[in-house]
Amino acid sequence: MVKGIVLEYRIDRRSGVATYLQIVQQTKQALRMGLLEPGDRLPTAREVVEATAINPNTVLKAYRELEREGLVEARRGLGTFVRATLGTGPADSPLRGELTDWARRARAAGLEREDVAALFTSVLKEHFEGDDT
């Protein structure tokens, strides 16, 4: 039941993105990738601030936001636990496999990393226009 820390946050102070949002986004990303699963415990505020040197209230604010979205729940005295998964693209899904093939073909065709990223972003934009990120 007791596992080590499953997630480490990386805070970029120069990104212009609010610190609590970085924590929210990285947690969601881990949920999408299947790195976090229902029942997993998020690191405690103490563990996060010791590693990142950010203010404890920032972590609590991020966790409250995740809780409000129904993704995690706080259990008194025990910690904050994952309740739900996000998206349908865990690390080993068929979709990922197809994307891996596609990336391989793009590279073989001589596309640079930036070209691929630009292409991907433009397709993403075309199909998910107006959606919340």
Binding site: T44, V49, E50, A53, I54, P56
Partner: peptide, 14 residues
Amino acid sequence: RHQLMGVLMADAAE
């Protein structure tokens, strides 16, 4: 500096 700030924040959290 980063480490000690982390220690300070952990103490404040706890």
